[in-house]
């Protein structure tokens, strides 16, 4: 049994875990990948949808504080990111799984998650238990002492999820976490997402619309660095009509919302 510290039960002093206003983030030297984004995300699972190049990865990187926004304001857990922010304190409460994350092939799963727990400044005596719990939550307990290079793609991704949740983050950022998972694993992953979303703010970027329908409590739709839609999966489904492209209501809603600006532009 883990002792609950005072910091964990303290009331929060912010309304939204993630709050962005007019956020601008550059990818590379020139391209403005996120361009004037307003966003308020609270507790729950938020699906980040959008076509390739919509700015999903850049947005998640700026939320993970590895990219510095060039404009607008970004507030994470009530801390404004700008000037001399103590990133260290903030990052202890963030979990991040990059899209194609690299790992050390000769490490075992346990060593990898332990190393990440150390990098995340989990207190040393809590590390073994936190690692065991994270590895069990992603269903890798039986492979915990196998080397990373012997794992399949889906298992590597689950090890990545384990390192993201090892510090019990308040904000969990997952960039394309379902790539390489087989259908059964994706079902299990949705359950885990649901569980994590009850007390933290989970942002999942994905290009699989059905993941969003099944696992997310809210949807954020991006296109060309701008917010196109923010609402529940049901509202997204309601946006589509029978004439729109797609096999399910939510896919039709997705294509309806993305098609609109193009049509306007075409008319001009």
């Amino acid at each position: 049994m883990r002792a609950v510290s005072a910091a964990e039960v303290a009331p929060t002093s912010y309304a939204w875990e993630i709050r962005a206003e007019g956020l601008k983030v550059r990818a590379g030297l020139r391209r403005m990948a996120v361009d004037g984004l307003d966003l308020s995300l609270g507790t729950g699972v938020h699906g980040l949808l959008g076509p390739n190049g919509a700015g999903k990865t850049t947005l998640i990187r700026s939320l993970a504080t590895v990219l510095r926004p060039v404009g607008g304001t970004l507030e994470l857990l009530g801390t404004s990111l700008g000037g001399a922010t103590d990133l260290r304190e903030l990052r202890r409460r963030i979990g991040y799984l990059p899209q194609d994350f690299g790992y050390y092939k000769r490490f075992t799963v346990r060593e990898f998650v332990e190393y990440m727990a150390w990098l995340k400044e989990v207190p040393r005596r809590d590390i073994p238990a936190a690692v065991q719990r994270a590895v069990e939550r992603v269903g890798l307990a039986d492979r915990a002492d196998d080397r990373m290079r012997t794992l399949s793609g889906g298992m590597v991704r689950r090890a990545g999820i384990a390192q993201a949740i090892v510090n019990d983050p308040r904000i969990l950022l997952l960039d394309e976490p379902t790539v390489g998972l087989d259908p059964a694993q994706r079902l299990r992953f949705r359950e885990l997402l649901h569980e994590l979303g009850t007390d933290s703010c989970v942002v999942v970027s994905t290009h699989l619309v059905e993941d969003v329908a099944a696992a997310c409590t809210a949807v954020v739709l991006l296109a060309e660095g701008k917010l196109v839609f923010e609402g529940t999966p049901d509202e997204l489904a309601a946006a589509g009509g029978p004439k729109d492209v797609g096999d399910s209501p939510i896919e039709r809603g997705y294509s309806a919302l993305l098609a609109r600006p193009d049509q306007e532009r075409g008319a001009w």
Binding site: R92, G102, Y103, L119, K120, E121
Partner: peptide, 18 residues
């Protein structure tokens, strides 16, 4: 040369200390 560079960069310990 460091495959886990992005994970490292996002960690609290990243920065001058590391």
């Amino acid at each position: 040369l460091d495959p886990a560079y992005e994970l490292t960069a996002a960690a609290p310990r990243a920065g001058l200390h590391l």
